[in-house]
């Protein structure tokens, strides 16, 4: 049984959200659908399950790594190679706070950035289902179904206000 990907394009968010709800009522599973859009819409607007994101967790992890690195620099290295300066203690607390802060933040932000890449599987230069109209602000609903079922979904979507519903091929973006 061969499954194909279809794309329904909407101009407005309301018809798109309605269509998604309708499709779900008609028995299409959430996993079968995917919304692509030129501006960010939240899951509640579209009536879609909340996508899972690891970015905040990654950020926390990065912050921890940065913090530990800072601890190594400010406490570890002076102990490894003691050098005394200006009558200050070998491990000066206030300056260490600064280094710790900067490195923690750096770790966190680097991890956040990296998290976007990991979570979104960036960069991916494989062919993907996409039409340039999306970046013109259209909202696309991608769904996968067998060819037999496709006409049913296409008709339903067209009735719900989709500008066009058509099968899409994965193309080189």
């Amino acid at each position: 049984m061969s499954e194909k990907t279809f794309l329904a394009l909407f101009s407005d968010v309301n018809p798109a959200a309605e269509a998604i709800a309708q499709l779900r009522e008609m028995g299409m599973k959430d996993e079968q659908m995917q919304v692509i859009s030129g501006i960010p819409f939240t899951a509640p607007i579209l009536g879609r399950p909340h996508p899972r994101t690891n970015v905040p967790r990654m950020a926390m992890g990065g912050a921890l790594v940065g913090f530990l690195l800072a601890m190594f620099f400010t406490i570890g290295t002076p102990n490894l190679y003691p050098v005394y300066v200006g009558g200050q203690p070998l491990i000066p607390v206030p300056p260490s706070v600064i280094a710790t802060f900067e490195l923690t933040m750096l770790g966190m932000l680097l991890a956040t950035f990296l998290g976007v890449f990991l979570d979104s599987r960036f960069p991916s230069y494989r062919p993907m289902e996409y039409v340039p109209a999306i970046s013109d602000g259209k909202i696309g609903v991608l769904f996968r179904c067998t060819e037999e079922e496709s006409s049913r979904w296409m008709d339903a979507l067209q009735k719900l206000g989709a500008e066009s519903v058509s099968p899409v091929e994965a193309v080189q973006l």
Binding site: V35, S37, P51, T53, V55, M105, T112, P123, Y130
Partner: peptide, 27 residues
């Protein structure tokens, strides 16, 4: 990077931008 504008991509981006916006201020 192959950005299409899927829900996940936007979600990750938005989360990241929120983190950045808050974190970069003290930096």
């Amino acid at each position: 990077l192959g950005f299409r504008g899927t829900e996940e991509e936007w979600e990750h981006l938005r989360k990241a931008m929120t983190i950045f916006a808050f974190a970069i201020i003290p930096v």
